[in-house]
Each structure stands twice: as C-alpha cells, then as structure tokens.
Design a protein around this nucleic acid. Structure first.
Length: 452
DNA sequence: TTGACTCAACATCCTTTGCTACAA
DNA sequence: TTGTAGGTTTCCATGTTGAGTCA
C-alpha cells in the first residue's frame, strides 16, 4: 500500500507498486528518497502528490489529510459585504489558494472566518504580532465557540484552530505542519522575508489564504509569496471603498522650509554624499544600488563617510524645526479632532511629546503602558498621540480623523498603513485628513513622491 | 508571573546623470 | 545597435518585534 506521511516539514510517499512510482516520478519538486526508497517533497507539495495518485487511480493511505469532524463543522453568522463575497468566491474558485488584498478596515478577518467556515478543517492562522494574535483569538473564540490554540506569547497549545505568530510558526512548522488543512496568513507580505518563507514550505495545508493591504514588495519578493500561497486573486484599494465602507479622505501636502542653519547642514551633508557617488561612478537608481554602497562602506572609508553624511542629511530634512512649528499650527487648528502624529524617529517622538504634552509611543514603550495610552485615546481622555513606526501595523489603534505625517520612508506600504489609521467610517460622515509635511528642496520631495 | 535583558530577524536605506561588458 | 545586467563568504544606521533566559 502506498502511504503519504508528514515528516519534518516534508511529505514522504512510501510506495510498493510500480504504478505509484510512475505517477510520482515525473512530478516537479518531488525527489527519490534513496534512504527509504520512496519519494519526498517539501510539505507544501502534498496536494500535488495526493492529486497525482488520485489521477492515476492508485489506492493509497493518506496519513496527512486532517480528519474532519462532522459534529464540529464551523458556521458563521457574519453577513458578508458584496466585495467580501466576491473575494471569497474568487478564492474558492482558485482551488482555495491565493491572496486577497483589501485596505485596512475593510474586514479581512471576516473574510477569513467565512473561508474557515467554508472548509471546516483544522486551521492555522499566522499573524505578525502578539497584539494581532490577541485580536484573532477573541474574534475566533466568539465566532466559532470552540477552543482556539495559541503558538507564541509564551504559550504553545494546539487546537483544531490555532493562532500563531510568524516567529512561532517558523519554530513549529516542521513539527506540526501536517496537522492543518487550511492556513491563513494575516499580513501575508511578511512571507517575503527569507526565513519566514520556510513556514509555507513546511506546511502541508492544501488550502491557503493570504491577507494583506499591501501585497507588492519593493524587493519583488511578492512573486515568491505568490508561489508559496497562491497568486493575488482579488484586490481593492482605499479609493474603491472610500465614501462607502471607509471614510472619505483627503491628503494635503504641506511644504516647509528648513531654517538657515538646517539648510547649511543639509547641503553640506548631501553634497558629501552626491560628490562621492559622482567620483566613485556609482549610480543610484534603485535600492540595490544603495545596497552596493552599503557593502562598499564596509571596506571603503570614503563610502562609509558618504553613507553617514546621507544619514545626517536625512535627519535634518525629516526632523526639521520648521516641521515642529508647523505641527503647532496644525494641532491648534484641529483642537477638536482626534489626531495621530507619525514620525520616522524616536527622538522626534519624544521631542514632540515634551513640547506639546502628548503621550508618546515607541518601541521603548512597554506593552502595559502602550495599552493604557491607546485605551485613553479610545475613551477620549487623550485626543492626540505621537508615534514612530509602532502604530503602522499589527496594533489595534483606535480611530482618528486626522493624521499628520511628520516624517516617513518612501515605502508605499507604510503610507497605506498610516492612511488606513484614519479611514474608519465617521458617524457624522465627515472627511478624514492626512497631512504630509515635506521639507522643500530636499530629497524628501522624492521620498514623498515615491510612496504615493 | 513579571520585568529586564539579549539576540535574531525583518524593513528601510535612493540621484537627476549615464559606466562597462555582453547577448541578441 | 540596442537592451540589460552588473562581484561579495554581507550589512553603514535606526526602528521594531518575538523568543528565550534569568533573576
């Protein structure tokens, strides 16, 4: 009898008939295992092996397929919105493999719950942060009324529905990868990271759903994600839902001038950088060109000096005094509003916090304190918070109607996530506003263009 | 159980002009 | 002539997170 087993992140086919050998031998990604005499492939190809055996009419014992308990089939009370239904149908039509891209606040969790109910198989949900893990646990326990396991945050309990962090999934996938029939990757763009790519490889789950608001990655690794989880099947962006399921919004670019001293410092540092590029023949057309410079800086003192100068220039343009002055005027204008201030540096967060007496949140803010601040922001005790990159993703941030980008990277993802923080529909139907402060005649103008 | 700490991993980091070698 | 890719056994700094360890 031919048998399929899960072993350490792989699927192993033990065969005892020539027909089975023939059916498996030509499959891509499947190799002969000289030790066992059978065939072996990364667990992600489990469905290919199974389908090949079925197609060849071969009787086999499948020790991987998760047992479906008919008494515990999942059902959901959610009423899907039309676009959620369309996204779900696209996914089901694509053999339950693929990525759905929806903006923050569009109800990706609801879609995942519907997908889980549609399959009713043991499911692993993978999320990037403990905070998101808590949210998913609450949601799933409420919706399905079944125990939900947890990998991460100091706990390792497995249930037919288990929510894991990416880090714990990485540590456990080669062990438990054969136990799930469906895997949901929340914020699936994280799978572009080199190490995390092993997670979907080590999982046998034939059904795979990726959720994200920003699928494409500047490094192109979303192509890899598509190979591991499935291609992007459905996509809506903020503008498709604004005014209907999300708040209407406007983005206002506010240009600020550097002070004379800042201008001098910026020009000096920037010209050190540019002069080095000219003299060394380096062109800067992409991130990989920048990477070349970084590598060179490990051995070439001039390259290192140029790189440090570039960082000084960035500091000046992103943290200029003029921006803080402009911020004062914006805060005065929006005294009645709920405001989140975003920066790219923790120093600036604390500077603003001290000057405007606004609670700061950075990576240095402990979990307990962070929750307290957000709770007070939620209940209205605070009407403004200032954060570095902490609130961009993976945190349940209370709604605001004004966002102020004091500084940020050229990342489209970061911009989209920050915009998403102010787009929850307003009870009075009012428009959300995102201010983008840009130092004129600096590289920040290009940075701001790039992220849009 | 909690908090402080270390560690590893991941993400961003980008000019305004135009080199060199090689394949089609 | 035109188009395209470009070496390396990584990795300047900063921000952020989760896991693990220890007191």
């Amino acid at each position: 009898m031919t048998t399929l087993r899960f072993e350490h992140g792989t699927v192993h086919a033990e065969t005892d008939a020539a027909e089975a050998d023939t059916a498996l031998a030509d499959l891509p990604n499947v190799e002969v295992d000289p030790r066992s005499g059978g065939f072996r492939a990364p667990a992600m190809y489990y469905a290919d092996l199974r389908d090949a055996l079925v197609a060849a009419g071969i009787d086999f014992e499948d020790r991987i397929a998760p047992v479906v308990d008919s008494d515990r089939s999942l059902s959901t009370t959610y009423d899907l919105r039309s676009y959620q239904r369309d996204a779900l149908d696209s996914w089901l039509d694509a053999d339950s493999r693929g990525v759905v891209e929806l903006p923050t606040g569009a109800g990706k969790t609801v879609l995942a719950v519907a997908a889980m109910a549609a399959h009713s198989v043991p499911t692993l949900v993978v999320v990037p942060t403990i905070d998101l893990q808590d949210q998913w646990l609450r949601e799933l326990e409420t919706e399905f009324d079944v125990p939900v396991g947890r990998f991460g945050g100091g706990e390792q309990t497995q249930e037919s529905i288990t929510v894991s962090t990416y880090d714990s999934a990485y540590l456990r996938a080669d062990d438990v990868g054969g136990d799930f029939g469906l895997v949901v990757f929340d914020e699936v763009h994280h799978l572009g990271g080199e190490g995390y790519q092993d997670i979907p490889r080590f999982l046998a789950a034939p059904a795979r759903l990726g959720l994200t608001a920003t699928f494409e990655r500047p490094d192109g690794e979303h192509e890899r994600v598509a190979e591991l989880v499935g291609r992007r099947l459905y996509r809506l962006d903020v503008d498709d839902l604004a005014g209907d399921h999300l708040a209407d919004y406007e983005v206002r670019r506010v240009e600020v001038e550097l002070t004379a001293a800042e201008r001098e410092a910026y020009d000096e540092a920037q010209s050190t950088f540019v002069n080095y590029l000219r003299s060394s023949g380096l062109s800067m057309q992409s991130g990989s060109d920048y990477q070349k410079l970084v590598m060179r800086s490990g051995t070439d003192p001039r390259a290192r000096k140029a790189l440090l100068a570039k960082q000084r220039a960035r500091d000046v343009m992103m943290n200029s005094e003029a921006k803080v002055d402009k911020l004062a005027r914006l805060l005065a204008r929006h005294r009645e509003d709920r405001v989140i201030i975003f920066t790219a540096s923790t120093d600036l967060v604390y500077r603003i916090s001290r000057r405007f007496l606004v609670p700061p949140i950075t990576n240095e803010t402990g979990t307990k304190e962070r929750r307290e601040i957000l709770a007070r922001f939620r209940d209205g005790t605070y009407d403004t918070v200032v954060a570095a990159n902490v609130l961009d993703e993976g945190v349940d941030v209370p709604d605001a109607n004004v966002g102020i980008l004091l500084s940020g990277s050229g990342s489209e993802r970061e911009f989209t996530q920050r915009l998403g923080r102010i787009l929850r529909p307003k009870s009075d139907g009012s428009t959300a506003t995102l201010y983008e402060l840009v130092s004129v005649e600096t590289a920040e103008e290009r940075v701001a263009d790039r992220r849009r």
